[in-house]
């Protein structure tokens, strides 16, 4: 793998071409790679927060990724899709400048479509007809249970998740 020897620009080009079949991702916290999509399987490598990976496959709560020379399975929630580092840096550079955060009324129509904005919501007039339509769509608990039963969905016992103790990951999103 002489990839490691070529300059950054060429590396970026290389990554771009690879993304045609493997999506780029960024590791959100220090994690282990496992040989199988299960935490009981063998640990094959460790990855640092901020590391770039290629996402190769997805299975349940696991992603198969390649990080440098290692390939293995990592928890889905430990990786964000897309290059550009963990939220802080990447998000500020890319999104902070590009979204309409500083002026939500301004529309950046990159997709060629005008998105819903605050002004639309502020100007909105109560629509009784649409509300009546929505309320008429309601289903009963019995209908919902029958619907779930048709595809074999059954109630599972899952405990509440604990509130995280430590501070939330710092987000430049909030402060700028």
């Amino acid at each position: 793998m002489k990839t490691f020897l070529i300059p950054a620009a060429a590396l970026a080009l290389c990554a771009a071409s690879v993304s045609a079949w493997a999506a780029p991702g960024t590791v959100l916290r220090a994690e282990k790679l496992y040989s199988q999509p299960a935490s009981t399987s063998k640990v094959t490598a460790s990855v640092a927060k901020g590391a770039s990976v290629d996402i190769l496959a997805k299975q349940g709560g696991w992603l198969q990724v390649r990080a440098g020379r290692s390939t293995g399975w990592i928890r889905l929630l430990s990786v964000r899709a897309g290059a550009g580092g963990v939220a802080g840096v990447g998000a500020r550079d890319v999104v902070g400048a590009a979204t309409t955060r500083s002026d939500p009324g301004r529309v950046v129509a990159v997709a060629g479509l005008r998105g819903l904005n605050e002004e639309d919501l502020k100007q909105a007039k109560f629509n009784a007809e649409e509300l009546a339509r929505m309320e008429a769509l309601s289903v009963t608990a019995a209908q919902a249970r029958s619907f779930a039963g048709q595809s074999g969905l059954t109630v599972a016992k899952v405990p509440d998740l604990p509130k995280p103790q430590a501070a939330q990951p710092a987000s430049t999103w909030e402060s700028n």
């Binding site: 960024t26 959100l28 929630l77 964000r80 963990v86 998000a91 939330q168 990951p169």
Partner: peptide
């Protein structure tokens, strides 16, 4: 990405 990270911790 921040939401994924926070959810991942939990």
């Amino acid at each position: 990405a921040d939401r994924l990270a926070a959810l991942g911790e939990a």
